[in-house]
Structure formats: structure tokens, C-alpha cells
Amino acid sequence: MDHTNHVRLTNAELTPSVLEDATIYGPDDEKIGWVDHMHGSQVVIDVGGFLGIGAKPVAVSANQLDFMRDEDGDVHAVTRWTKDQLKSMPEHHD
């Protein structure tokens, strides 16, 4: 997916209702997870699993993700982390 024409979200748009279920893309443009929820200034990403089953929740700072909208208005994010790097992070517990 070419992200160059996608519109970056403003800080005011980084809200739970906007970010929930946003797809997360890794450095090779691979789908590596999705936003489960926000926990303060952190975004909890579900990584791995299949259809939400067996996914590992990990928390990262929202400013470590580049959130944007595509041509259809769908919100997604790009990160420098790979799926394996996210899976190696400590599991997030609310």
C-alpha cells in the first residue's frame, strides 16, 4: 500500500473511537496487527493470532506509530517494528 497520499491524523484525532480496530502495517507494508484499545497515551496492539484468537496485546506509545487515513477514510498506522519485534514485547495487562 502506498501511504504517500494518505492524510496524517492530528493529535486531536488520536482518540479511542477513531483508532479502535485500525490496522497496523510494519516496515515491509505487512499487516502486523490492529489497535485493540488505548490505555492512557499508549496504544494496545493485538499482534498475531487468527481472527482475534490467540493474539498477544502489547502496548506502545502513540507517538511511535504514524496514524493516517487512506483514500476511503479508513484509519491505519505504520510502524518501524516488525511483527516478531512486537511479539517479543511484554504482554500488556489492563
Results as ranks from 00 to 15, higher is better:
E13G: 04
V47C: 07
I32T: 03
Y25C: 04
H6R: 12
G54M: 04
L19V: 10
N63M: 04
D72L: 11
D84F: 06
F67N: 05
G49Y: 04
D84V: 09
G33S: 00
E71I: 09
G26C: 08
E20H: 10
P27M: 04
T15E: 02
Q64I: 00
I45M: 01
L65S: 12
W34P: 00
D74L: 06
F67E: 02
Y25V: 00
S41L: 10
M38F: 05
L86P: 09
D72A: 15
L51S: 11
W81N: 10
D94G: 11
G26W: 10
N63L: 03
P16W: 05
H93M: 10
E13V: 05
L14C: 05
A59Y: 04
P27T: 01
V78Y: 07
R8S: 13
H92S: 12
E13S: 07
A12H: 11
I24A: 01
E30Y: 04
T15F: 04
L9R: 03
S41Y: 10
W81I: 00
D84Y: 11
D28C: 06
D29N: 14
V78T: 05
G40S: 13
Q42G: 09
D94L: 03
M68W: 01
V58T: 12
K83I: 07
M89A: 13
D29A: 12
S61G: 14
Q42M: 09
A55G: 15
V47K: 06
G52H: 11
V43L: 09
D66I: 03
K87C: 01
L65Y: 11
T79Y: 07
S61F: 09
V47N: 06
M89V: 05
D74F: 07
W81A: 08
P90R: 11
H76I: 03
I24V: 14
M1E: 02
A59F: 04
G52L: 02
E91R: 14
A22L: 05
R8N: 11
L51V: 04
S88G: 06
H92L: 01
N11Y: 00
E13P: 01
D21F: 09
V47M: 01
D70C: 06
D94M: 01
D46Y: 08
A22V: 13
I32M: 02
A22W: 06
G49F: 05
G33D: 00
H76G: 11
G73W: 01
D2G: 15
L19D: 07
P90D: 08
A55I: 09
E30N: 11
N5I: 11
Y25S: 07
G26M: 09
K83D: 01
A55M: 11
S61Q: 10
A62V: 13
D94H: 15
A62F: 03
G54V: 13
H92R: 09
D84I: 04
H76C: 12
T82K: 07
T4N: 10
H39K: 13
H37R: 15
H93Q: 15
M1G: 13
G48P: 11
H37Y: 14
V18C: 07
Y25I: 00
K83N: 02
M38V: 02
N5Q: 15
V75K: 03
A62W: 03
V18G: 03
G26D: 06
T82L: 06
K56R: 15
F50W: 08
M89Q: 12
G40Y: 12
M38R: 12
G26R: 11
